[in-house]
Design a binder for these strands. Structure first.
Lengths: 386, 386
DNA sequence: AAAACTTTGTTTAACCAATATACAAAGTCA
DNA sequence: TGACTTTGTATATTGGTTAAACAAAGTTTT
């Protein structure tokens, strides 16, 4: 979008800076906000007054004195409104009602019997309506809906292609926006998960994060400089179809040797493989008993995860890697081979300060992240780059 | 960097918008600038007056009338200063003196006998001094030096690691800045090449570009939204060590099956391979005569290039791919297998509107791009993101 | 050729947000 | 009690954009 400078822009920038400073450091005094932002005390006072008028910030009594007048502590008003975060999975639909701070107020869950779009949409709309009914009264009410989808999503919220659902070119955003009359953000499931871990999970305050969602396929959410990197058309991170074996197994995408054929739940589909179960949850039970085929298979998945992760490290050089998705349940058996392979294969400069963890939000990360996208869309975020 | 809003910022933003509008659309009238930027006519007049005072913009007589008073055409003053762009290769040092519009004024070239840092630095400094001596008199004189280096460069211009030169942790920027007392920008060679093609070559006005530099190794320059994407620490695009064969050939980086072992000049090193020459230039001569081993080898390199390019397409989804570097000389033999493999392996959404070309600037792309980095550093570029 | 209209670029006055400065309020410390 | 500190507000100033009027220099119509 074309943006020129005028005084309205200045005000928008500073107000946004102040709001997010309060949101991140709450409770905080006006004086402290002035100090950390570099803005003049008077400017902070004026804009805080407006934010209070908008109910986004509240005054919460005096704080501790540090040798002078007691500060008046400011809070980000998490309860000024609510959002709904939804995760659409292959066989399941999960949703939460959150406040503006990402706190979960209510949770819903349902099983999907098929992937027909009208059926899934109906389930989704019903779940949204139920959650709206449970929402506590607030100044803004429901301010947005965020959805995490297992597929490629363009910048307008159109689901271009979701192979596991059999969807193509579904304008989910427009449909939900006209149904509920609130802004809707649609994100790739891995991008949503990355935002969840970044703001509420294992990656708080990390600037450069790589989130790998390993489940029925593999997708990656990439955070650069504290912000989600969406790439050209909004669908960077389609890494599951990265070739790691030039002449490897043929893939449904038309290519060969795709990463997700070796390091996702797709590996369970090989009928020649001797496995006591064909789901991650099932296999985890056997792994706990030490079943050899299972242990060896998890070891293989871990190693192949390591190969793909190494490729991504070479391209993006993150500080932290978080493994999420259904396979993160198998952390005890995947962690060692994954870390071993990455250590063997990465360039020396990447090894420094590189950490690999597994998701901390577990199965909730994606929907919380999707909800957070809606929060940020409501609050706005404006930045200046030199 | 922390930026807050005030009137000085507004002015900086608008002045930058106006300057770059004139630079891109020159010659253009004040009225037209006001129209395309959305800024008020008075604002444009005031800031243009300042830019004229700074010698960055010049008035160049009246233009064609369109039914009213004739417009006073404005030019970006390319001759207000000059920059030096340098490409450091494994066996060669190349440099140009450019004006601010990327026009080449003088060119220098020298052979490197070894890679000892003091020797190379000496050669580079001598070349810079010679070019400075030939610079025409101008208002700002030499305003910067840009260098493209075959290796990883951090955000402070330190060459972290350049395997083909045997360099590690060389603070090239500081050294050159204190030697010549002008700002110096150090870029990875592929990033510089990408900027060259974007501004002056095969990729003008492309918003999402992937530039592949294939030579003694492989590196990638990634342009997202019209801007160079440098990643976390400034060294995104180290794609040569992407694994494309999980259990492939061992690489000096410690990993196996790295892309550049299959698709760069490194393939010539295999002594078991029957080849009539061991340089790209040499092989091109044989290929022109139809020598079978050569043709088959170029075919193989083309196919493997296609595999890695596909992986990058899946992650970045560019509009255009430009192949540069020494191997681009072999375009007639690489193009077909490369495009064929990409067409076979990419997801359908990437196939649409995806074009693959070879470098148009040839061996000059990198140094012109490096010089352009220095120009942009001098002019400044400030943006606001909503 | 004169009058009416168009387009370009400048001048003027108004507006508005941030800022420095002064100041008031409310605390701590000796 | 009195000096000092810290917090937050009030006031005048600064400096940028802008709308509107205007001047200058064309073209088109009558």
């Amino acid at each position: 979008m074309k943006v020129t400078g005028d005084q309205a822009l200045v005000k928008k920038i500073n107000k946004s800076i102040i709001l997010h400073t309060i949101r991140m450091h709450s409770p905080i005094s006006r004086a402290k906000v002035s100090e950390v932002t570099g803005l003049n005390k008077a400017t902070v006072s004026n804009l805080v007054a407006e934010l209070c008028g908008q109910q986004l910030v509240t005054e919460a009594g005096p704080g501790e004195s540090s040798g002078g007048r007691k500060p008046l502590m400011l809070h980000f008003n998490e309860m000024a409104g609510s959002v709904i975060g939804i995760e659409l999975r292959v066989k399941q639909l999960k949703a939460v009602l959150c406040n503006l701070g990402g706190g979960i107020l209510h949770e819903r869950d349902s099983v999907l019997e098929n992937h027909d779009f009208p059926y899934v949409l109906g389930q989704m709309q019903q779940m949204i309506s139920e959650l709206i009914a449970t929402a506590p009264p607030s100044h803004y009410g429901l301010v947005g809906i965020g959805v995490g989808v297992p597929g490629m999503v363009d910048e307008h919220g159109v689901v271009l292609f979701a192979p596991n659902l059999g969807w193509e070119m579904v304008d989910l955003r427009s449909i939900l926006e006209s149904a509920f009359a609130v802004p809707v953000t649609i994100d790739n499931e891995a991008n949503a998960g990355a935002q969840g871990e970044l703001n509420f999970g294992a990656a708080r305050d990390v600037r450069h994060l790589l989130y790998i969602s390993a489940g029925s396929g593999i997708g990656s959410g990439i955070i650069i400089g504290g912000e989600l990197y969406k790439g050209a058309r909004g669908y960077a991170g389609e890494t599951g179809h990265m070739t790691i074996e030039a002449e490897g197994k043929p893939c449904s995408c038309g290519s060969r040797g795709c990463w997700e054929l070796y390091a996702s739940e797709k590996t369970y589909d090989n009928p020649g493989l001797s496995l006591p179960a064909r789901t991650t949850t099932g296999l985890v039970k056997y792994a706990l008993e030490g079943q050899p085929d299972t242990l060896s298979h998890f070891n293989s998945i871990g190693e192949y995860l390591g190969i793909g992760v190494t490729n991504l490290i070479n391209s993006f050089n993150p500080e932290l890697i978080v493994i999420g998705g259904a396979l993160s349940e198998a952390e005890p058996w995947l962690g060692e081979p994954l870390r071993r392979v990455v250590a063997e294969r990465t360039l020396p400069y990447h090894k420094q300060q590189l950490e690999i963890t597994f998701s901390r939000l577990g199965s909730r990360g994606t929907m919380i992240g999707a909800g957070f996208s809606a929060v940020m869309h409501f609050l706005g975020n404006i930045r200046v780059t030199l």
